[in-house]
Simulated scan of single mutants.
Amino acid sequence: MLIVPEREIADLMTRKAAFDAVEKVFAAMASGEAYNFPVVREAIGHEDALYGFKGGFDRAGLTLGLKAGGYWPNNLDKRGIINHQSTVFLFDPDTGKVKAMVGGNLLTALRTAAASSVSIKHLARKDAKVIGMVGAGHQAKFQLRAALEQGTFEKVIGWNFHPEMLPNLEEVAKEAGLPFEAVELTGMTEADVIITITSSFDAILHADHVAPGTHVACMGTDTKGKQEVEAALLARARVFTDEVAQSVSIGEAQHAIQDKTIKIEDVAQLGAVINGTNPGRTSDDEITLFDGTGVGLQDLAVAAAVVDLAVEKGVAIEVDF
Score class of each variant (00 low, 15 high):
residue 3 I to C: 03
residue 5 P to T: 09
residue 15 R to S: 13
residue 17 A to P: 00
residue 18 A to Y: 01
residue 20 D to M: 04
residue 21 A to S: 08
residue 21 A to W: 00
residue 24 K to E: 09
residue 31 S to T: 07
residue 32 G to D: 02
residue 34 A to D: 06
residue 34 A to Y: 00
residue 37 F to C: 02
residue 43 A to R: 14
residue 46 H to F: 15
residue 47 E to K: 14
residue 48 D to W: 11
residue 52 G to I: 05
residue 53 F to R: 10
residue 54 K to E: 07
residue 54 K to I: 05
residue 54 K to C: 02
residue 61 G to Q: 09
residue 61 G to T: 05
residue 64 L to A: 05
residue 69 G to D: 04
residue 70 G to S: 08
residue 74 N to S: 15
residue 80 G to A: 13
residue 82 I to Y: 08
residue 90 L to I: 07
residue 97 K to L: 07
residue 97 K to E: 14
residue 100 A to T: 08
residue 102 V to H: 08
residue 102 V to S: 08
residue 102 V to Y: 05
residue 104 G to P: 12
residue 104 G to K: 04
residue 104 G to A: 01
residue 112 T to W: 00
residue 113 A to Q: 04
residue 122 H to P: 01
residue 128 A to C: 12
residue 141 K to H: 11
residue 143 Q to F: 13
residue 145 R to Q: 15
residue 147 A to R: 05
residue 149 E to D: 15
residue 154 E to G: 06
residue 157 I to C: 04
residue 159 W to Y: 13
residue 161 F to R: 11
residue 164 E to D: 10
residue 165 M to W: 02
residue 168 N to R: 12
residue 170 E to S: 11
residue 173 A to P: 12
residue 175 E to R: 13
residue 175 E to A: 14
residue 182 A to V: 08
residue 184 E to I: 02
residue 185 L to N: 07
residue 188 M to F: 05
residue 191 A to N: 03
residue 191 A to H: 01
residue 195 I to S: 06
residue 195 I to V: 15
residue 203 A to T: 08
residue 208 D to C: 04
residue 210 V to N: 01
residue 212 P to W: 05
residue 217 A to I: 09
residue 219 M to P: 06
residue 219 M to H: 03
residue 221 T to Y: 07
residue 225 G to C: 06
residue 227 Q to K: 09
residue 231 A to Y: 10
residue 233 L to I: 09
residue 248 V to S: 08
residue 256 A to Q: 09
residue 257 I to D: 05
residue 261 T to M: 13
residue 261 T to P: 01
residue 262 I to K: 01
residue 270 L to R: 05
residue 271 G to D: 01
residue 271 G to H: 04
residue 272 A to I: 03
residue 272 A to R: 01
residue 273 V to M: 06
residue 274 I to P: 00
residue 280 G to N: 08
residue 280 G to T: 04
residue 282 T to Q: 14
residue 283 S to G: 13
residue 285 D to M: 11
residue 293 T to V: 11
residue 295 V to D: 00
residue 295 V to G: 00
residue 296 G to V: 02
residue 307 V to Y: 09
residue 309 L to F: 10
residue 317 I to Y: 07
residue 319 V to E: 07
residue 319 V to L: 10
residue 319 V to P: 00
residue 321 F to I: 04
